[in-house]
C-alpha cells in the first residue's frame, strides 16, 4: 500500500485572538447565567415569579448558544428566519398545554 502524504496542503492561518476571546467571553456569560439560576433556586421563594425568571434566563442562554456558538446570526437572513420563525408554533403549544394541564388539575383536585 502506498503511504499517503498526510502533510497539509492547506494554508494554516494564525489564531485570531479577538475571536477566541469572544468565545471565552460567551462561555463566561453562560456560566454566570447558570450560577445566577442556582443562587435564585436557593434564595427565592418558589412561585410563578421565580419560574418566569428561570424560563427567561434559559431563553437568554439559548440565544447565546444559537447566535454565538452555532453562528446562526452570521447566516444569510432567509436561513436565519427559516429556523427562527417556525418556533412560533411552540408558543401556541405551550399556551394550549399549560391550559390543558391546569384544567386537568381543577378536575382532579
Amino acid at each position: 500500500m502506498e503511504i499517503q502524504d498526510t502533510k497539509s496542503t492547506l494554508e494554516v492561518t494564525p489564531r485570531n485572538n479577538d475571536k477566541i476571546k469572544k468565545i471565552w467571553k460567551t462561555a463566561g456569560i453562560l456560566l454566570a447565567l447558570t450560577v445566577a439560576e442556582f443562587i435564585m433556586a436557593f434564595t427565592m421563594d418558589r412561585g410563578i415569579l421565580l419560574y418566569v425568571l428561570f424560563i427567561l434566563l434559559t431563553v437568554w442562554k439559548a440565544k447565546y448558544i444559537m447566535m454565538e456558538f452555532m453562528h446562526l446570526g452570521d447566516e444569510a437572513k432567509p436561513l436565519f428566519y427559516s429556523i427562527i420563525v417556525p418556533l412560533i408554533f411552540l408558543v401556541w403549544l405551550l399556551i394550549a398545554l399549560a391550559k390543558e394541564g391546569t384544567d386537568i388539575f381543577l378536575m382532579r383536585w
Binding site: 492561518t13 468565545i23 453562560l30 456560566l31 447558570t34 456558538f69
Partner: peptide
C-alpha cells in the same frame, strides 16, 4: 457547557485549517 466551548474552539480552528488545534 465546557465541552460546547471546546467544540466552538475546534470549529474556529477548522476555519483556519489548523489541524493540530
Amino acid at each position: 457547557i465546557s465541552s460546547s466551548v471546546t467544540m466552538v474552539l475546534a470549529v474556529e480552528a477548522g476555519h483556519r485549517n489548523d489541524r493540530n488545534d
